[in-house]
Structure formats: structure tokens, C-alpha cells
Amino acid sequence: MKSFEYTITEEVGIHARPAGLLSKEAAKFKECTIKVWKGEKSAEPKRLIQLMALGVKHGDTIKVTVEGADEEAVFEHMKKYFEENL
């Protein structure tokens, strides 16, 4: 399992629009379990409602864990996605 920490700079946090886009992105990797952690709570980003319910706001520091097939590549891909979009 690989993980990285990230502080959200997106103004509205992971709300409707950014959540929808992140969800689409994460759903691309079917063989890999991706999770977004906010403190003790976590959500799978491909599950949109879960992700939105996590209530990640601007300035929140979250942890993203990646586990499964092709872990390394998915990790790099998601890290880049967060840095560029959120």
C-alpha cells in the first residue's frame, strides 16, 4: 500500500463539481482500492456520495491510500491529479 498526504487548495473543497470529476478519475482504476482519509473517516472516491459525505473542505489535509494492482502507477497518477486539480 502506498499513501500521500495532501492539503486541499481548491476553493470549494471536494464538493459537487470537483467531487464528480475526482470520482470519474478514480473509477478508471478498477483493480485498485483508492481511499481518501479525513482523520479517522475514509471514503472511496469512486463512490461519489461517500466522497461528498466526507465533507472535505478547502485547507483540509487529507491522506490518500492506494492498494492493489499496478499500485505504483496509480499512486503517481492520483498524486498528480490531486496536485493539479484539487
Partner: peptide, 19 residues
């Protein structure tokens, strides 16, 4: 676009796994 994304999000909610 902003409004369109809302309905695209709705479509995703319709197919949400937890739901």
C-alpha cells in the same frame, strides 16, 4: 458548463454504488 456539470453529477449519483 457549470450548470451542465451539475446534471452530469446527478447522472453519477444515479449510478452511485452506495446508493
Amino acid at each position: 458548463d457549470e450548470a451542465a456539470v451539475l446534471f452530469e453529477t446527478h447522472a453519477m449519483m444515479t449510478e452511485d454504488l452506495d446508493y
